[in-house]
């Protein structure tokens, strides 16, 4: 099972997963969760146009075309949200459908030529991670490293700007530059990620690992690292599972695994984490209450007190989870 092609696919998938997971945190925290969907759809006309003009199926060429129309879509969305009363959902929806419609028009032009376009469209709509070659892997690797490097270098500026842009502007960090940087990183990630899962499933690959990581972690650094890890995990599991079961496409499988991970996290993480981290019972004063209530209440009260006692013991033992309650 673990032959050369498989190793390439796995490495490629994990790199894409890491990249999407890391950038996805920023997308999520900026409140642009569906940006991935919109920009991915908006990339189609650019990709088709690049194909028409250059007649090559080189990944880099097609993706550059996609980058141009994707960037145009992002600009249009920003323009509409800043200058009109429309909210970002309407802007995203419009860019999505209109650009994709343009892409469909261009595709019919392509259809008339004696060149097969099916495979390209397949790759675009559903991703083609299971068919990537060594050259594509190198390309993905280089781009992923560059993006991650940028994030490490500009870490504090990026985090602080996403948190409070006007404050950062007021201390001298031009928000235009930071915003531009983030948008470029997001655009690159979406275009690369298209190869993994395709247009329709893009948003999950971006935000599911981030949402899942957010359920478990409370600091930006851990959220980003865990999100990258979850992204890689979903991609690898997706590839392996789709390989085991014959005939299942890889992209959807990755999405299923990622979704499973995020829903599991959403359902259980708050349950578990509360028990360990933030659970705080009013301090047990050691005074037993005299009961004038019904039997049911008595039982509850006793149970609560006993539970509180055991909780205090547990807290005492695991010192770092004791929090002084400080409500001024």
């Amino acid at each position: 099972m673990l032959d050369y092609t498989m190793v390439i696919v796995l490495i490629g998938a994990s790199l894409l997963g890491i990249l999407s997971g890391v950038i996805g945190v920023f997308i999520l925290l900026r409140g642009q969760s569906l940006l991935g969907d919109a920009v991915a759809h908006a990339a189609l006309p650019g990709i088709v146009l690049a194909f028409l003009v250059t007649e090559s199926k080189n990944i880099l060429v097609l993706l550059s075309g996609g980058a141009v129309s994707g960037a145009a879509g992002m600009l249009l969305m920003t323009l509409v949200t800043t200058h009109t009363r429309l909210k970002k959902d309407a802007a995203q929806g419009m860019v999505l459908s209109i650009f994709f419609g343009l892409g469909l028009i261009l595709l019919t032009v392509v259809q008339k030529r004696p060149i097969t376009h099916q495979s390209m469209l397949n790759k675009f709509l559903f991703g083609n991670i299971s068919t990537i070659l060594y050259q594509d892997l190198v390309c993905i690797g280089v781009i992923t490293s560059i993006v991650l490097l940028f994030i490490i270098i500009f870490w504090k500026e990026l985090v602080a700007s996403v948190f409070d842009a006007s404050y950062m502007q007021s201390v001298g960090f031009r928000q235009q530059s930071v915003s531009f940087l983030i948008s470029i990183l997001i655009l690159i990630t979406i275009l690369i990620g298209l190869q993994a899962v395709g247009v329709i499933l893009m948003s999950t690959l971006l935000i599911a690992p981030a949402v899942a990581a957010r359920q478990w972690c409370d600091s930006m650094r851990s959220v980003v690292i865990v999100s990258g890890f979850f992204g890689a995990l979903s991609s690898i599991m997706g590839v392996l599972l789709s390989n085991c079961m014959v005939g299942i496409p890889t992209g959807p499988m990755i999405v299923v695994v990622a979704s499973g991970l995020v829903f599991f996290s959403i359902m259980t993480a708050s349950f578990i984490a509360k028990r360990i981290k933030n659970f705080s019972v009013p301090p047990y004063t050691g005074v037993t209450q005299t009961n004038t209530h019904t039997q049911k209440n008595t039982h509850t009260q006793v149970r609560t007190q006993a539970y509180a006692q055991s909780r205090i013991c547990f807290c005492y033992m695991s010192k770092k989870y004791i929090k002084q309650k400080d409500r001024a």
């Binding site: 409140g31 969760s33 959902d89 499933l201 999950t204 935000i207 299923v256």
Partner: peptide
């Protein structure tokens, strides 16, 4: 949040359909 919820649900459904 609204759009996060939307973005998590529909790709899953679509992926299930394709599978």
């Amino acid at each position: 949040k609204k759009d996060t919820a939307i973005g998590l649900i529909f790709p899953l459904f679509f992926a299930v359909g394709v599978i």
